[in-house]
Design a binder for these strands. Structure first.
Length: 474
RNA sequence: CGCGGGGUAGAGCAGUCUGGUAGCUCGUUUGGCUCAUAACCAAAAGGUCGUUGGUUCAAAUCCAACCCCCGCAACCA
């Protein structure tokens, strides 16, 4: 056996301003599915997760709730960690941007990027009440007066540090075009390449008086890092950069992101990496949004679905089943309670019932369990997983589940019990071996259930589970 | 003339890049089965593929024009 191949997978780090969201769940599920798939193929995989904890919004929110900001972010980081665990997602590394090690490493990265950073003035409309700038569009919509403070905006200019994106544009474009850094799906790649043409240099700091809760800019007491370097660098600081040689793990095999943050991960992040002379990630896997009953989730409409509530409804594997099979890996997709329930019924009817009936038949045939001796290669499955079409791959596995139900009907083992005990054993033997093969594939998507199936059909004596895998709810 | 996504069976979708008998899941109807969770299996019904025109032996697919729906300020992934 040679040395195990090593792969690194990352998830976007959520801003701890809010609570876990269905979008975060997609990040974690996709990354975890890929991780399980690679591990199944014999690779050693590190999966990063983390939280983005700086910024004035977090600071203000902590103040408003009367909690010290350190405690506030501790509590919120914990919420996300609990959530990730509840999803059955197993990360190997967790990074918090307020971790002193991360902060120190960010400062070192800033220094290394020195020659691509310059200072310039930002000029815009500013509200003295909000202590913040507004966009030109907001200015026009509010007719030049801040609606919160009834004060007219003033034209103000402030000093910011900028990262010179222009220096890297050409290399970024070619890396994306020739899939050196592959953006999936292809449509988003095109979309971003268009966007890249006009991409301006990016402001990477704020005056300290405006943004106190953040990483100080090295060598300038008056400035604090704005989100970009602080947040994006997490992917490598968690590996130990720049203290450690990270070439074992970096470049990442895949970085999972939502479609809204593609521009930062395809535009700013590669600039940082190039500035540090580090290779670009091999893949950016971009997923869509989840809508609810066909509508965009929004706090003001009040239709935000709390994933933790959904999770509690039928358990973690039902959740994973829905969001990995019935939600397109890359495109937007819809959630509704009705659809969720109907998906649960599929689990119960197709898979739960299959396990139940096959185990019962095995009792009649007095079957002993099998251990899987050799994993079968499955080219079709590998092809789909390789394209990150997880939902299609899941469909493909599900067809195997349905195929087993068909096979039982065709072979009629319950008749063989009376007529042909020898053939019965043969038939059941092959069914057991096939269901173990299916369970092996299912482990990638619904690990808890897969494990139960393996336990049942590899036991010394096969018996149906005491409680069915997915009990009916109505 | 802003940008993007979409319009295929009652519902949700695939197929469009690379033209060749229109497919999947759910639902509906009928039948089968009784090992199983009112499950499972089989068969059937159901579509002028948004509209119009063009290219072609052949168009859901390629080309052109048009119509309709949904996103694109902020909270928010």
């Amino acid at each position: 056996m040679g040395i195990m191949k090593k792969s690194y997978i990352t998830t976007a780090i959520p801003y701890v301003n809010g609570v876990p969201h269905l979008g975060h769940a997609m990040d974690y599920l996709l990354a975890d599915t890929m991780r399980r798939y690679l591990v199944r193929g014999g690779e050693e995989v590190r999966l990063q997760a983390g939280t983005d904890e700086h910024g004035s919004k977090v600071f203000q929110k902590a103040e408003a709730s009367g909690v010290p900001v350190e405690k506030f972010v501790d509590e919120n980081a914990k919420k996300f960690q609990d959530f990730i665990h509840a999803l059955g997602v197993e990360y190997t590394d967790f990074v918090r941007t307020t971790d002193p090690e991360h902060e120190r490493r960010c400062q070192e990265i800033w220094v290394k990027l020195g020659k691509y950073i310059y200072k310039d003035a930002y000029e815009g409309w500013y509200c003295e009440g909000c202590e913040g700038f507004v966009t030109e569009k907001e200015y026009e919509e509010n007719n030049g007066v801040c609606p919160d403070h009834q004060k007219p905006y003033v034209r103000l200019s402030e000093e910011n540090y900028y990262l010179r994106i222009a220096d890297f544009k050409e290399r970024m474009r070619s890396a994306i075009e020739n899939d050196e850094m592959k953006i999936t799906p292809a449509g988003r790649k095109k979309e971003f390449l268009n966007l890249l043409v006009d991409m301006p240099d990016v402001s990477i700091s704020r005056p300290k008086k405006q943004l106190s809760w953040g990483v100080p800019v090295p060598g300038d007491d008056t400035q604090v890092m704005y989100v970009w370097i602080d947040a994006l660098a997490n992917y490598i600081t968690v590996l130990g950069y720049p203290d450690k040689d990270i070439s074992e793990w970096w470049p990442a095999e895949v970085q999972v992101i939502g479609k809204d943050i593609l521009r930062f991960h395809a535009g700013i992040w590669p600039a940082i990496l190039m500035g540090l002379n580090l290779p670009l990630p091999k893949n950016l896997l971009t997923h869509g949004y989840i809508t609810v009953n066909g509508e965009k989730m929004s706090k003001s409409v009040g239709n935000v679905v709390d994933p933790r509530v959904v999770l509690d409804k039928y358990g973690v594997d039902a959740f994973r089943y829905y969001f990995l099979r019935h939600v397109s890996t890359m495109e937007d997709a819809d959630y509704s309670d009705e659809k969720y329930e109907s998906a649960y019924n599929e689990l119960a009817n197709d898979l739960g019932n299959l396990v139940q009936r096959l185990a019962t038949l095995c009792v009649k045939g007095e079957m002993t369990g099998q251990t899987m001796i050799e994993r079968q290669r499955d080219d079709k499955f590998d092809e789909l997983m390789g394209k990150y079409e997880f939902n299609v791959a899941f469909d493909y596995v599900w067809a195997k589940v349905q195929g087993l139900n068909k096979k039982i009907d065709t072979e009629k083992p319950w008749e063989l019990v009376k007529t042909d005990p020898e053939k019965l054993v043969m038939v059941l033997d092959s069914l057991v071996s096939e269901i173990l093969g299916v369970a092996d594939l299912l482990e990638v998507f619904i690990p808890e259930t897969a494990k139960k199936i393996v336990e049942i059909f590899s036991a010394e004596k096969i018996v149906p589970p005491e409680t069915s895998l997915f009990p009916r709810t109505r």
